[in-house]
Structures are given as structure tokens and as C-alpha cells.
Design a protein around this nucleic acid. Structure first.
Lengths: 256, 256
DNA sequence: ATTGACCTTAACGTTACGTGATCCTATAGA
DNA sequence: TCTATAGGATCACGTAACGTTAAGGTCAAT
């Protein structure tokens, strides 16, 4: 059986250009050339190609493959063993890198959270007031409640804010886990987490059923909150708000 | 503080050429150019370079680094996370490859052993006789012993040979472990392994103290044996022979 | 004879620089 | 002021393993 470049390419899954290239560098020469300069391969070349592809899969360079294929079995074991140790080193290195990345992600998240803290600490008072205006305009908070919440918060120091945010951070992570485990927003586990969220909000003001749902709507409406939650998981915002709604309807009363 | 290429290169550990290159692709431009076209960098560039090197360490491409560095914290987390998943995939893939290599090494060793079996089965009678001639010439075996050993072996079938070689294989691996653990050739553990070796040899012929030592010498003298043992570990041959000598001197008598 | 599938060689593009080669500039000592 | 030398600049080719046109022959069937 004799194969042209295209046939061999289809049989082996490599591109025609690759066959040209392997010919060029002397890694795999055709069985013979026709008068038309066409390359013609036979079984022997097919088998050699399989070998080449096997080593290529293992990440061995073409130069090394050349050497290996002309070597004896003994040396092949050697070559594989040394290649193996390179691979193992790579793996170890890359596992280190993954760890570093994880740390960095944590660090960046921390920074983002710190920014939010700064925002809440008044560096971005404007936005804060914007959020309150939203809740006030929609009738979820009275002016008195807003004043009350400011009073409570005014004397918080940096540590207070940091631990508040750490709580929020833990809560968000737990919710992401819930999302990944396909827990429904109605599930007991998730509703317990929402209870925590509600408790956190209560430190500022005690929302009614309506206004707790309204708070959720604000999370969806404001890009700042979206970004904050997207940072954990793209569906977290919707998920949290849906769960808040269910919580409100089951646990909260209309007034007060 | 202002740095020239050389200064910055020394501070950061990258080559001057790399700085030229980063300038060329717009990844890191100097603070300004002198009238002489010299590049002058300042603190800001030094810090930027640190960042670049950090991401480069993580295996991020320069193009991606460009994008990441001009992006916001949110997107950096994204970029790192997606890079992380690529890394994890790589790691998984490479662990697969290591497994494949291990299998292949086992397979190649098997082939080598099979070749030896074929050799012993008479495909390479010539070599077999060469070894015997060596032992005979040195006076370690008599002609009668050679005949005896041939008689014993003649009716062995492929299975017999295969299991004989598997035993040998296990023994060699155990010895390699001993080498790696720095066991001395005199140690109890190693001497027990040599006992096994001696038992194996006895299936052909019962060597005396002298001839068992002579057998070891033959292992060192013949390239075929060297290759066979080197296949396991470069020091295995010497180690085995040394241990055989000790075994012979302690356990074997001079005649019969 | 024409068409379409298939073949050829040639040559540039990719990544992240390394390695010269050639020429210019700055600075310190004689 | 001359000069040595250290350092700077700009080409420009080389690397690995092909991908991707481009321009142009060949084969088989119609």
C-alpha cells in the first residue's frame, strides 16, 4: 500500500505541512519520490510516524525524537526516564505557580474588599448616599431609618469594618459553594445563610419583608454591587437576591 | 532616582535585550529618552517591571500581561483565574504523560528482557557459548558442568524462561532499591537478596566459592550483562558483583 | 480540453528573547 | 585634550514547530 501526503495525513491526523516539515528536517522521509516530485509513503513510514507522534505526545522535542528513534532500546529507556524527570519537575513547578496564583487572587480580592471598605468609610460618601436615595425613593427606608443607620455606623472603626467584610466574604464564599453544589435557593442550607445575611443587615436597620426584597433589587440595579458579587461568581447576585426574596416571604412580616 | 538600561537590568535581573524588547512592543516604555536616544527609567517603571515579571513567572504571555496590567482589579482576578485553570489542565495532562511514560518504560524493559529470553532460548546460541567458554577457560566450570547445565535447561519452555526472568527482574529491582537506600553490600538485607540470586544460579549449576565469584567477574567483563544491569541502574552491576563476592566468601566453601 | 482535486516549493508569521555586528556616547585618567 | 573603556543604540539573524497564504504544476475524470 502506498500513501500520498493527503492519505497519510488523514490516516495519522497530522497536517500535510507537518509531513513536508518532517521530510525537510529528515525526521520522516517518504519511501520514495515520484518523477513529479510527489512524496510516496509506505507502511514502514506509517509505523515510524506513529512512533514519532507517540513521543511528540509525551512532549519530546523533534530533535530528541530523531535521536531516540535511531537509538537502541536501552537508550530509549534512558531518554524516557530523563524526559520523565523533566516532566515531573515541570509539574512541581506548575503546582507551585497554582498556589501562588491562589494567594494572589486572595490578595487581590482582599484589595477589592478594602476598596469597598474605604468607600463605606466615607471616601465615597457620594455613592453611599446614592444607594440610600434609591432605597428611600422606592419607599424601602424612611429618612429616619437612614439617619438611624448612619448613627450606628458612625463610630465603627477600621477593625469593625474589616470584620464586617470578612463575615460578608465568608458568607459569599459559602453561597458560591451552594451554587456549585446545585442547592436550590429554597434549601434549608441556603436559607440559613440568608438568615446570616439578614442579621448583618440588621446591624444598620431592620428591614421589613418589602424593604428586604427591595434591598435585593438594589443589589441587581447597581453596577457596584454587581461587580462586588461577580467577583465571587457570575450568578451570585441573582442567586442571593432570589434567596433573599424567599427568605423575606417566609420569615418576615409586612410592617415594622 | 533614574536608571539606565544596565542599572535596571541589574536591579531586576532581566537582560538589556529584554528591556529593549519590552520597549519595542510597548510593554514597558522608559520614563523618557535622552538626546542621545538613551533610555531612562524611574521608580514607576521599576514597579511596573516587577509586576510584569510576576505575571511572566506565572507563565502568562506578554500579550496577556499587557492586557492585565491595563485592566482593573476585577479583571485581574478573572485573568488569573482563567490562567489558573489552564495551568491545572496542564498539570493533569502532564501527570497522564508521566503515567504513560512509566508504562512505556515497563514495556521497553519487558522487550529487552524478552530479547534476553530469546537469546537464552537459542536464538543467540553463539553468545551463550561465548559466556560458557569464558567460565570454562577461567576454570570456573568444567565441561561436565556445562553439559549438565544444558541438560537441565533444554526442556524449559517459554513460560519457564519468562518466570525465571521475572524472578530476576524482581531481584534486580530490589537491589536497586537497596542501592538507593545506601544499604551496604554486606548488609543482611542485601545478602538475603544474593542468597536468592545464588538459588537461581543453582538451577543450572552449583558454583563453588571461586566459581561464583568468577560468575560475577563475567558480569563485569561482558557488555551484554553490563547493558542488562545498566538498564536498571548504572551501579547495579558493580554492586551485585561486590555483594556476590562477600556472599561467596562468607557462605560458600572452596570445592565441590 | 477543461475542471477540480491534489501536489509542489517558497516564504513570511508566530513567541520571547539570545547573540553578535557595527557604530555612537560618556567619562575618567594621562 | 587625547584616549581607553565601559556602556548605549540600532539592525538583523536564529530559535521550534509548524500555520498560512501564494503561485504554479499534475492527475483523473468528464
Amino acid at each position: 500500500m502506498v500513501y500520498t501526503v493527503k492519505k497519510l495525513s488523514q490516516l495519522s491526523g497530522v497536517s500535510i505541512r507537518t509531513l513536508h516539515f518532517y521530510d525537510e528536517i529528515g525526521l520522516l522521509k517518504p519511501a520514495y519520490y515520484g518523477d513529479n516530485q510527489y512524496r510516496y509513503y509506505e507502511e514502514e513510514q506509517l509505523l515510524a510516524l506513529q512512533q514519532i507522534l507517540f513521543f511528540r505526545e509525551l512532549g519530546v522535542s523533534l530533535k530528541e525524537i530523531q535521536e531516540v528513534l535511531t537509538a537502541e532500546s536501552f537508550d530509549r529507556v534512558d531518554a524516557l526516564a530523563s524526559h520523565r524527570s523533566i516532566l515531573v519537575q515541570n509539574i512541581e513547578r506548575q503546582m507551585m505557580l497554582v498556589k501562588t496564583i491562589d494567594k494572589t487572587i486572595e490578595y487581590l480580592r482582599g484589595n477589592i474588599i478594602m476598596k469597598d471598605i474605604e468607600m463605606y468609610e466615607g471616601f465615597d460618601l457620594q455613592k453611599q448616599q446614592e444607594y440610600e436615595k434609591y432605597l428611600f425613593d422606592k419607599g424601602f427606608m424612611t429618612q429616619e431609618q437612614i439617619n438611624e443607620s448612619w448613627k450606628k455606623v458612625k463610630h465603627w472603626n477600621q477593625n469593625d469594618w474589616a470584620s464586617f467584610y470578612q463575615e460578608g466574604d465568608a458568607l459569599n464564599k459559602a453561597l458560591v459553594t451552594a451554587i456549585k453544589n446545585n442547592y436550590t435557593t429554597e434549601s434549608k442550607e441556603v436559607q440559613q445563610l440568608i438568615q446570616q445575611h439578614y442579621e448583618m443587615v440588621k446591624r444598620f436597620w431592620t428591614p421589613t419583608k418589602e424593604s428586604y426584597i427591595g434591598l435585593g433589587e438594589m443589589y441587581l440595579a447597581h453596577a457596584d454591587f454587581r461587580k462586588y458579587y461577580d467577583n465571587y461568581h457570575p450568578e451570585l447576585a441573582e442567586y442571593l437576591v432570589a434567596a433573599m426574596k424567599i427568605f423575606a416571604e417566609k420569615q418576615l412580616s409586612d410592617y415594622r
